[in-house]
Design a protein around this nucleic acid. Structure first.
Length: 271
DNA sequence: ATAGCAACCTGAGGGC
DNA sequence: TGCCCTCAGGTTGCTA
């Protein structure tokens, strides 16, 4: 489910329920996530959550003693629920708080991660190598233009590369390229500065709008309170293979790039 | 350095 | 009904 807008929606949803509250208990039902959840996780017990922030698609729950890093992978969801709520399949991890609420991670595919880190988390290899946030001032067309010179990689692959910019997953890569009218196969190094300036704006806008609408619910994404996101109805190309382009009626094409489906309009995104 | 691709894992859906 | 195949919001870490 989660690209940046979904993770950000999640962050906003859980924050008011857990910030300034104390972790009463930690429950690990299945430690076999992307990396094993280690026993050091118990150190969060008794800690107060000072803040919930996001870096790339990671959520950072900061406490005095350390930081809990959460990643939702492909299929993870976080819910805030009353303590003692019945456990469902794939409910792998709980933080039980002193206010009667529980933060519960459900993740069928277990590509997500739960890591307890001490020290400067931003120095951790997972975060240290990440590119700029797409919604920051640091990220703009000039930046993309400079980064892309002499690169033969396809533009779609380029903007999905976390070393270039974080948080742009498959849905929003497809959508922003459609909005910018850029062919996903075009070599990044052959795109003009002018087009990159437009593309960067489109990326920001599409992410911002998706956040405002609570993210994209495809099949299983829900906000922290269980409600779906509403951006799916705004999708112009993602998941619309063979359906008519909303602008020109041409049937949308689907190709594979780096193992991921790319949907685009062969007419509106000719070059 | 860079690009392509398999790997991690479960579930849904399609074809037969 | 069941089996087999493909595909899915992500990211790491191999191989050339």
């Amino acid at each position: 489910m989660p690209e940046l807008p979904e993770v950000e929606t999640c962050r906003r949803g859980i924050t008011p329920h857990i910030v300034n509250h104390t972790v009463k208990e930690v429950v690990v039902r299945n430690a076999n996530m992307r990396w094993p959840i280690t026993d050091t996780i118990d150190d969060i017990q008794g800690q107060v959550i000072d803040s919930v922030t996001r870096r790339a698609k990671y959520l950072l729950l900061k406490t005095h003693k350390g930081t809990l890093l959460l990643h939702l992978g492909m299929s993870g969801t976080l819910r805030v629920i009353p303590e003692h709520t019945e456990v469902s399949k794939h409910d792998h991890f709980d933080l039980v708080f002193d206010n009667g609420l529980t933060l519960r991670l459900n993740d069928p595919r277990r590509f997500g991660a739960v890591l307890w880190l001490t020290g400067d988390v931003y120095q951790h290899p997972l975060l240290a190598s990440q590119g700029p946030e797409p919604l920051s001032e640091q990220f703009d067309g000039q930046y993309l233009y400079e980064k892309s010179r002499n690169k033969t990689v396809a533009i779609k692959t380029f903007i999905m590369n976390n070393h270039i910019v974080v948080g742009v997953g498959n849905i929003y890569a497809n959508e922003s390229l459609f909005q910018a009218g850029i062919n996903p196969k075009k070599a990044a190094g052959k795109i003009s500065k002018k087009r990159f300036i437009d593309l960067a704006k489109r990326i920001k806008k599409v992410l911002q709008q998706a956040i405002e609408q609570g993210g994209t619910t495809l099949k299983d994404f829900t906000q922290a309170d269980g409600r779906p996101g509403y951006f799916a109805q705004s999708l112009m190309v993602y998941g619309r293979k063979d359906q008519p382009c909303f602008l020109c009626e041409t049937p949308l094409k689907e190709i594979k790039q780096g193992g991921r489906a790319t949907t685009f309009c062969p007419r509106c995104q000719k070059n």
